[in-house]
């Protein structure tokens, strides 16, 4: 990257930035791509409007926010906190409590947009609560141990949760409520599902990923990480699984018989700094990656070209999120730096 004049060039010319003063727990654009929200360790949710306008601060949680996702519809988000509250946040800055769970933490939230009926979900201890788009509770799904990761499939038909000794996959609309149980011994700490819904991959305590192919019950083991994977996700076409936890972006090929027996592609490595967050582009074979020293890059997977977005020095990257159309990237760090970068053609 020595030929680049400044690693901050894109941030300087195309970004808006704020020092928010607290750990950025999560970032998410609303479903329409209008605005971006940042959930913080001080319990607030900050909303960055289009352009360089004033960012609203919403007092969402009494304590720390722990999770953030887009709402099911419109200009809205949902957040969970260590105050036990599951909140709906609107772009105008209003915060509405969907449910309060007392002393228990709301550790994970998820949503799905659907033409007919959007869905919201949150994980509280061993329970996953599923709501309609308006926040009316539909059902509660119980797991054998605390839920550590929560994700809807691309169609919103199923919801998958990671926990000890595997993952559970539930049909959201089913009345019978028995999950498909995916078993693998150990503590599973995060989850992703392939766009076609056939592959479930979890991150594990033992610095590895584990996957299940649902169609033929094939197990997939992806190992070799020097540290835990905190972020993982598939590219839009499902060909690649991007993951953090190494000193580069680790991309497992989910085509041509992979990932079994195939080495992963490694991008943006060489500095010996741990990759802490990845976010796949919503349309192209590209991934945004953040590192422990604050560096953020965008990597084109097929050409292996790396574009620096933001240089090191603003705290370990703890959140990355793309707008639905892939024109804007949100960045957040542990020390409270946040930015929204505009990648659209000018």
């Amino acid at each position: 990257m020595s030929e680049i004049v400044s690693a901050d060039q894109i941030l300087d010319t195309r970004g808006v930035r704020r020092d928010l003063g607290a750990f950025v727990v999560g970032a998410a654009f609303d479903r329409t791509g209008f605005a971006c929200a940042f959930a913080l360790g001080d319990g607030t949710v900050r909303i960055a409007p289009p352009g360089d306008g004033e960012w609203a601060s919403v007092a969402a949680h009494d304590g720390a926010a722990l999770s953030l996702a887009a709402g099911a519809v419109g200009r809205a988000w949902v957040s969970g906190g260590d105050d036990g509250r599951f909140m709906a946040i609107a772009a105008d800055g209003t915060a509405t409590e969907i449910t309060a769970f007392g002393m228990k933490w709301v550790e994970k939230v998820a949503s799905h947009a659907d033409a007919k009926a959007g869905r919201l979900a949150c994980a509280v201890g061993k329970l996953v609560h599923v709501f309609d788009a308006g926040g009316k509770k539909l059902k509660t799904l119980e797991h054998p141990s605390s839920v550590t990761g929560l994700v809807f499939d691309a169609k919103g038909k199923r919801i998958a949760a990671s926990h000890y000794n595997g993952a559970s996959v539930w049909f959201v609309a089913s009345s019978s409520d028995t999950p498909r149980k995916l078993e693998w011994k150990g503590s599973h700490t995060g989850i992703a599902i392939s766009p076609d819904g056939d592959c479930i991959v979890t991150a594990m305590q033992e610095n590895a990923l584990h996957g299940w192919r649902l169609s033929d019950s094939q197990h997939m083991r992806m190992t070799g990480y020097p540290s835990k994977t905190d972020a993982l996700g598939f590219t839009k076409n499902g060909k690649w699984l991007a993951s953090s936890g190494a000193d580069c972006v680790v991309l497992w090929p989910f085509f041509g018989g992979g990932p079994m027996g195939k080495p992963p592609t490694e991008l943006a490595g060489g500095d010996g700094v741990t990759c802490t967050f990845v976010a796949c582009h919503p349309q192209h074979d590209a991934v945004a990656a953040g590192f422990a020293d604050g560096l953020v890059v965008m990597a084109d997977i097929n050409s292996a070209r790396i574009l620096p977005v933001m240089g090191p020095g603003r705290g370990s990257v703890s959140a990355l999120a793309w707008s639905p159309d892939g024109t804007h990237l949100a960045v957040g760090t542990e020390t409270g730096f946040a930015a929204v970068v505009d990648f659209s053609k000018r």
Binding site: A22, D42, L66, G186
Partner: peptide
């Protein structure tokens, strides 16, 4: 919530809930 580390050693048991809680507490501002 105790789990066995997946390393074949039966005495390597760990509290996964504490790992999550310590991680969560570190995000707090106060």
């Amino acid at each position: 919530e105790v789990f066995e580390m997946n390393n074949g050693c039966i005495c390597c048991t760990v509290r996964g809930d504490l790992i999550r809680i310590v991680g969560g507490l570190m995000k707090r501002r106060d």
